[in-house]
């Protein structure tokens, strides 16, 4: 994506994708966004070639089952439209579960995005503050091994270096872990793996009855390498 934006045709959109939209895959989100932009009657820039495609670039795709308050998309237009107007037009063509919260000309590259903060809420048997702290300590111990399914079969990997910090809390029903995880394009950590680690090492969500146990993940914010806010 062009980052030199002197033509002011590339607009960065920060948006949220919450509620039931956590079950919409990234691929489906891209298709959906395309239709939203057409509905919004924005002058889209199309790539050249046999099968012209609009230019939409997303940062750090979200996996199914994670909500987010910090999604980013760069949209290339074919003519100048004020970013606020872009935001308004798009928002009136979306449902409340997906809304643009900011629109601006980007200065940072998506490759500058290094960390993401997630809020992971867990309702499980025996949940309490000590249990939450124990989960935190497991994630912050010297090594955090987890089995990953790769193409060449199961493999044990250490994800410790991809975890920057974890804070733990308990509200009487849910244990909440606020975790800063790597979002680097070459070392992206899927927060579902945190759940996996805690299932294996802390015994959370062991009750097979899904109505008694539950967890949710929300992406809260994005950061540069020095933990300043990514924009």
């Amino acid at each position: 994506m062009v980052q030199v934006n002197s033509d002011r045709l590339t607009v960065r959109l920060k948006f949220r994708k919450t509620g039931s939209l956590q079950y919409v895959s990234h691929l489906d989100l891209v298709r959906t966004m395309h239709k939203i932009i057409i509905r919004a009657k924005l002058p889209l820039y199309y790539s050249e070639g046999f099968n012209p495609k609009p230019k939409m670039v997303f940062a750090a795709p979200l996996s199914i089952g994670t909500e987010s308050l910090a999604e980013f998309m760069d949209l290339r237009l074919s003519e100048y439209v004020d970013p606020t107007l872009v935001m308004e037009r798009l928002n009136s063509n979306m449902t409340s579960e997906m809304q643009i919260t900011e629109a601006y000309y980007p200065t940072a590259k998506f490759t500058d995005l290094k960390w993401m903060t997630y809020s992971i809420s867990i309702k499980t048997a025996g949940a309490c503050l000590e249990y939450a702290h124990k989960c935190r300590d497991i994630l912050l111990s010297d090594s955090v091994e987890v089995t990953k399914n790769t193409k060449s079969g199961e493999k044990s990997v250490d994800i410790r270096s991809l975890i920057k910090s974890v804070a733990s809390d308990f509200d009487g029903e849910y244990m909440t872990l606020r975790a800063v995880l790597s979002a680097d394009q070459s070392a992206f950590l899927n927060p579902e793996l945190i759940i996996k680690v805690l299932r294996e090492k802390a015994g959370i969500l062991a009750d097979p009855d899904l109505t008694r146990e539950y967890y949710s993940i929300m992406r809260i914010s994005a950061h540069n390498g020095d933990m300043t806010e990514f924009r």
């Binding site: 039931s20 939209l21 079950y23 919409v24």
Partner: peptide, 10 residues
């Protein structure tokens, strides 16, 4: 395919 069951479509 949980997206089948969510509703909330535009």
């Amino acid at each position: 395919k949980p997206g089948r069951y969510i509703g909330g479509e535009y």
